[in-house]
Simulated scan of single mutants.
Amino acid sequence: MVNRLIWSALLTLPFCANASDSLLKAQVESLPIHVQKVETCGAWTQADRAGYYRVVVVDVHEGAGSEIYVQWIAQPTHERRSELVRTLAFPELNDDHSQYAIQEMRCKKVGSGIEIAIKAQYEHDTVDKTHAIRVLVKAAGTYAISGTARSGKRR
């Protein structure tokens, strides 16, 4: 009798595990194929709101290049749901006519902002070269880029 109870309990374990890890499976499956990487990186605060930074890398033209974005995601509170507050694009890197193919991306918190370290190849290089690009993003949404094949702008 005890063996039968234990066996019955063991048979139900895989079903419980499958159910619990599938809560957002449909949402994950609906992510566009060209989303290469999503990484959270550091926290931000602003007046009565707080949240975290999310860095998103997407492939363009079937992997011929990449684009990168930083998003401010607000944490949920009793009054508000979690929400996307802002998305920052980088025209210096996300230029369709002067494209980078991001091979590696790391992000870390620096002060009240974040620093993104990128290794990428530039489509107009005449030799096989990997560029070490650094993007410093401040909480206010300003940023500085260094290490690009073209001169980086400050915003």
Rank of each mutant, 00 (worst) to 15 (best):
E39G: 09
M1F: 10
R4N: 14
V35Y: 11
S8H: 11
D21C: 11
A139N: 14
A9H: 12
P91W: 01
T148E: 09
V110G: 06
P32Q: 07
D128W: 02
A101T: 08
D96S: 13
Q27E: 15
D125L: 07
I6D: 11
A64T: 00
I6W: 04
T77P: 03
V58T: 11
E104S: 15
R80W: 04
I6P: 09
Y53C: 02
I68E: 00
I73T: 02
G141A: 05
V57R: 00
H34T: 12
G152P: 04
H124A: 08
N18G: 14
R134C: 04
M1L: 09
K119Y: 08
T87V: 15
Q99E: 01
H124K: 13
K108R: 15
K108E: 14
Q75F: 12
A89T: 00
F15I: 15
T87M: 05
V56R: 08
G111A: 03
K25M: 12
H97Q: 12
Q27D: 15
S30G: 07
A144R: 06
A47L: 11
S66W: 01
D96H: 07
Y53N: 02
S66N: 03
W44M: 02
R4M: 13
D96T: 08
Y53E: 01
G111F: 02
A139F: 05
L84G: 06
R86D: 03
S8P: 08
R154C: 07
D95R: 01
A89M: 07
A74R: 03
L31N: 08
K153A: 08
C16W: 15
S8V: 11
A149F: 02
N3F: 15
L31Y: 13
H97F: 11
G111W: 03
G147P: 03
V60R: 00
P91N: 06
D21T: 08
T12V: 14
I68V: 14
L93Y: 00
V85L: 15
K108H: 13
V56A: 04
N3G: 15
I114H: 05
R49N: 08
F90E: 01
K138L: 02
V110C: 06
G63R: 03
W7A: 12
I116P: 00
G113Y: 03
E83M: 13
V85K: 15
T126Q: 09
E79Q: 11
S82Q: 09
E39K: 12
I118S: 00
E83N: 12
A120R: 00
E104Q: 14
S112T: 14
H97N: 10
A47V: 10
R80E: 13
E104L: 15
M1T: 13
M105R: 12
Y122A: 06
A47I: 04
E123R: 00
E62M: 10
A50E: 13
V35S: 04
Y53G: 01
R106L: 10
L31P: 06
L24Y: 15
K129M: 07
Y100G: 05
S112L: 01
L136F: 06
A47N: 11
E92C: 07
H78Y: 12
L11S: 12
L31R: 07
D59P: 03
I145D: 01
K153V: 05
A64P: 00
R154A: 12
T87E: 07
A43Y: 06
H34A: 11
L88E: 01
G141F: 05
R150H: 08
Y100N: 06
C107K: 02
I102V: 14
G42A: 05
V127K: 10
